[in-house]
Design a protein around this nucleic acid. Structure first.
Lengths: 236, 236
DNA sequence: CACCCTTAGTTTAAAATAAAAACTAACTTA
DNA sequence: TAAGTTAGTTTTTATTTTAAACTAAGGGTG
């Protein structure tokens, strides 16, 4: 130990740098989007990248807190659905040397986000997700990270209540079904869907209808207070 | 950036140290066990801990390689089932300061491991898993890491082919069923189990029977070459 | 204000699957 | 050769899914 610390402190011997990078998902006009920022500095200046940053060991008590800090800085959203996805670390992903990125994914309601495309000094934008990626080439290995997050999201949507977090606080069951269908890319049977949701028991009707289109109004629901993410015992 | 690097290099400002820690699972006498090592140095000297180590930025091309290196060093197993579980990082888990542990889980066939309880200079031992933990108190936050890995394992066993990796290369279907039953803690129906396995199509019969107990011999199977982990679309 | 159109939400009937149990097969030992 | 034991299959019954039809509740329109 003592011997090791006397070696010259090159990047090859010092610990890797650790960042937190977020795939922040939201629905923009019914379609799944991810928040990207345009980098202003090298490496990868002018490339789009996932929002992220170094862990501040003097400020962040733990990794989750670092992720929440990044999310709040970029979107002003404080209580999202936030889940650690996976860590990516190698010596090639950043030209400056060995780095580790702890990837998170966040699900927010676009309405809650305090930004619009191009509203910020640094360019911040919602980009639509097509298949398992996004149109522009990304900095670092962010397209790999993003693809992993998208797969994780799609996979979980199959058998969990996760998509509620993409909707505003109040929503209808047809709204919810539409989200599942958009993310999974297939139609689902109405009565089967409603049966699953009823069994899973994570939403409750709020007694006051809405969605007064020129047809039968739909019942409004909200997430049951204090209900964690529910996993169905079968694929939807 | 330039300004920051001129600050005194305290542990509060430098990047966190990054380790890789492994929950290595195997079956010992039909029961699920995990490999633990007794620490010889502070902090937590004489406590049992998950095998692990720092990332060697000069030697390991990426995090997976670091995990494989640790595994090979401790068990001599080279091609296990290895999966990243989650990263744990905060300022309290190691008294020396902010650290990140990237947790992996490995599934091996105990027969393959080049060690026995107490065979090594440093004490290395298979400990039985009871509920979601292990008898002795562990170093650092390793009991949290282990509990997370066990939950992940149990969860995946419900709907995947993962447990084959705990068996030796050749096994029978009753063997396989017994493993599922042991890990999940419940009996399963024989014909339903066989139907699932047949549909999942990740094992193949090798034409040569065995298990010549004093009753009908059971067909020997092996993992189909090049078959990835299969996920059932329903819970077993 | 009747009637049509559209979407919400429920019910019913047919098809597919799972669960349980019974049954057959193969081998050893007595 | 009969009994015991575990392997592996088949049959039967119950449950669940799937698909479709049906009822409900608006607003718009003539």
């Amino acid at each position: 130990m003592a011997g090791a610390s006397m070696l010259p402190l090159t990047t090859e011997i010092s610990p890797p740098n650790v960042t937190v990078d977020l795939s922040i998902f939201a629905l923009v006009e019914q379609a799944l989007h991810v928040l990207l920022m345009k980098r202003t500095t090298d490496p990868f200046a002018d490339r789009w990248a996932l929002p992220g940053g170094y862990i501040h060991t003097n400020e962040d008590p733990d990794v989750d807190a670092a992720a929440r800090r990044v999310l709040k800085d970029k979107t002003a959203v404080e209580t999202p659905y936030l889940e650690q996805v996976q860590s990516f670390g190698d010596r090639a992903r950043d030209p400056r040397g060995w780095t580790v990125s702890i990837a998170y994914m966040a699900l927010i309601s676009a309405a809650d986000a305090g930004l619009q495309c191009g509203s910020n000094a640094a360019e911040v934008c919602w980009w639509p997700i097509e298949d398992d990626c996004v149109a522009p080439p990304l900095a670092f290995d962010h397209s790999v990270i993003l693809a992993t997050s998208i797969r994780r999201l799609r996979n979980k949507v199959e058998y969990s209540s996760l998509p509620v977090h993409l909707l505003p606080e109040r929503f209808t069951l047809p709204d919810l079904q539409a989200i599942y269908e958009r993310i999974l890319g297939r139609r689902m049977d109405k009565s089967a869907f409603r049966k699953r949701i009823a069994e899973a028991d994570f939403v409750e009707a709020v007694p006051g209808e809405k969605r007064a289109a020129s047809n039968r109004p739909a019942q409004i629901y909200r997430l049951k207070p204090g209900s964690a993410t529910i996993f169905f015992d079968r694929t939807l």
